[in-house]
């Protein structure tokens, strides 16, 4: 009976572990960072979020939309309603048709979704070498593949890492991934060895691999050759709060901002979770007492 219990427990653990195994491992994982939003009590750093919004607005928004986020959602970042209103009003949104049947431009309102840089996917693809720049609303959540093996992912889950692996990916992709003259080691990170390929053949393959035209080498991009040119350079923007705009700082801030954008309910979720777990712990304790009390005279 006890053994059976143990094997069931092992089964449950393994099954949980299996479930989260990442999609086909695409080489190494970017180094991990400690974010303020991990752990049971972790929450976003408002200053990071606000700086991240600035990076998004001044750099990313030139090509990437964020259709699922609305200006009104920015209250979460610590902005007042008036600030949001004037922020939104700096964008023009096409509305209509009006009574004459014409489309017209008006300043965006708090209730509008973030304005997309392109009115449709065809234009977006045509202006970007045939590839539609993906919408960034869910970019972190959809890249949160975990940290590799079942065991690592399971431990990360117990540490409430949340979407941190996705944040790491985005942050390193735009922050440290671009290398002008990649070494063999760099190439090995993004172009893994095929199953059954000899070391020599693998080495020759990646040495001889030529960058396709219109691509940029990025160490953290699966397949190495990325269609997006390097977006961030030292001091390419000036932070409103005076933080030095290093490449790593901007990458970190925008990745944290996009983590928030992936799930604006993130903080509410964890705050509610603490209360629910505390309640259930008390309830469980109470039920243990009740059960013992009820069964006290039964020999079984």
């Amino acid at each position: 009976m006890r053994k059976f219990g143990l094997s069931i427990a092992a089964a449950a653990l393994l099954t949980l572990g299996v479930s989260s195994q990442a999609s086909a491992a695409t080489g190494a994982h970017p180094p991990t960072t400690d974010y303020s939003f991990t752990g049971f009590f972790g929450s976003f750093d408002r200053a990071e979020l606000q700086r991240g919004l600035q990076v998004y607005k001044q750099v990313c928004a030139a090509c990437h939309g964020m259709d699922l986020v609305h200006y009104r959602d920015l209250v979460d970042l610590g902005y007042s309603e008036d600030q949001i209103k004037s922020f939104a009003a700096t964008f023009q949104v096409t509305d209509g048709p009006n009574d004459d049947g014409d489309m017209f431009d008006r300043p965006a309102e708090a209730s509008d979704a973030f304005i997309s840089p392109f009115s449709n996917d065809k234009i977006a693809a045509a202006s970007n070498g045939g590839v539609v720049p993906p919408d960034l609303s869910l970019i972190v959540k959809s890249r949160a593949n975990g940290y590799g093996g079942i065991g690592q992912n399971f431990l990360a889950m117990l540490q409430i890492k949340g979407y941190a692996s996705g944040t790491d990916y985005v942050s390193h992709l735009v922050g440290t991934g671009y290398i002008e003259e990649p070494t063999l080691e760099d190439k090995m990170v993004c172009m893994p060895q095929n199953a059954g390929e000899t070391d020599a053949a693998y080495k020759t393959r990646i040495e001889e691999h030529q960058a396709p035209p219109g691509t940029y080498f990025n160490k953290w991009f699966a397949g190495c050759y990325f269609k997006m040119p390097q977006p961030l350079y030292e001091d390419s923007i000036e932070y409103e709060d005076g933080t030095p705009a290093t490449k790593e700082q901007m990458a970190h801030d925008v990745a944290v901002f996009l983590t928030w954008a992936s799930e604006p309910a993130f903080e509410t979720r964890k705050e509610t979770g603490i209360k629910v777990l505390l309640f259930l712990a008390v309830f469980t304790g109470l039920m243990i007492a009740v059960k013992r009390n009820v069964w006290r005279n039964v020999k079984h």
Partner: peptide, 11 residues
């Protein structure tokens, strides 16, 4: 509340 997407797939 703390690992809602653990058993799902990010894709």
């Amino acid at each position: 509340f703390f690992a809602p997407n653990y058993m799902g797939h990010p894709d």
